[in-house]
């Protein structure tokens, strides 16, 4: 069985806004999947229906045999420890140190008392340090998070998610607030995480070129429906237009250089702006 199975999931906000309609997909272990689509397509909603930060209106979500949409609270917490989340705005506690923020990744495993007291054992602390070092943050360990650059903050966010020892990472536009060089660092780390640690990555992206460069598979969403699902090699200007509609025009211009089937680095900044 696949790691994640989404079956016929729909989400309707306030009985009127249809954010997702009958989405079905399977994601396997270690896959690197990008989700692209215009603003308001439902990308964030889809990610949050997986770990139930948003409750789907109908359909079923299976993760490691657990039917997430029907889990009781306590079991849901357990499943959430297996799913790390990375955010566009990092969502760190800015007044705390890097180290404390990363250790937050362990809270899901703790009893109320141990968690409230902030008790972390030496294994957890060692692991936190090692993960930070692997992400190139060994100099920053005891700095307060509000003293970090955006790229560093995002690496702290990733470290926190990794300390959960997750099976899967959900990344909601992890590079949308970063400059191109920080973006590359973050995407390279995510790629390494999926390849070397076999952690599945589901990444919402605005930049088509980045999605093409890094993904094993791309899912295109428009108006809450999956309009494309396949390897990056199959992305063509026509498909971009199907995903982005009228917005696609500039995207296609900047992808002109891209022949079907070839992973080519397109000028990142242009595409980033076109897609925003």
């Amino acid at each position: 069985m696949e790691l994640l199975e989404i079956r016929d999931v729909s989400k309707i906000y306030n009985r009127q806004t249809v954010a997702l309609s009958n989405i079905s997909l399977n994601v396997g272990e270690g896959e690197f999947v990008s989700i692209i689509g215009p603003s308001g397509a439902g990308k964030s909603t889809l990610l949050r229906c997986i770990n139930r930060m948003i409750d789907p209106s109908s359909g079923a979500v299976f993760f490691q045999q657990n039917r997430i949409d029907q889990l009781p609270k306590k079991k849901l917490r357990q499943v959430r420890t297996q799913i790390g989340m990375v955010f566009q705005h990092y969502n760190l506690v800015n007044r705390l140190t890097v180290f404390e923020n990363v250790l937050h990744g362990r809270l899901g495993y703790k009893s109320t008392l141990a968690g409230v007291l902030g008790y972390y054992d030496s294994f957890e602390r060692r692991a936190a340090y090692e993960i930070l070092a692997a992400l190139g943050l060994q100099e920053q360990v005891f700095k307060r998070c509000d003293q970090l650059s955006g790229g560093q903050k995002q690496r702290v966010g990733i470290a926190r998610a990794l300390l959960q020892r997750p099976k899967m990472l959900l990344c909601d536009e992890p590079i949308a607030s970063l400059d191109p060089s920080s973006s590359k660092i973050i995407m390279d780390h995510l790629q390494r995480i999926s390849r070397e640690m076999k952690i599945t990555c589901l990444v919402n992206l605005h930049q088509v070129d980045v999605a093409i460069k890094y993904s094993d598979r791309i899912i295109g969403i428009r108006n809450g429906e999956v309009v494309f699902d396949g390897p990056p090699a199959q992305i063509t200007p026509l498909i971009i237009e199907q995903i982005y509609g009228t917005e696609a025009h500039e995207l296609i211009l900047s992808l002109e250089t891209l022949q079907p089937g070839q992973k080519s680095p397109v000028k990142q900044s242009e595409v980033a702006h076109a897609a925003c």
Partner: peptide, 27 residues
Amino acid sequence: SSDSSVEALRASGANYLHVIRHAVLPS
């Protein structure tokens, strides 16, 4: 001051009191 970090901790499986103690209060 604590909106976004609350979301992050809840998503990681932390319970209500953990979130209050480690995200809401410090911020």
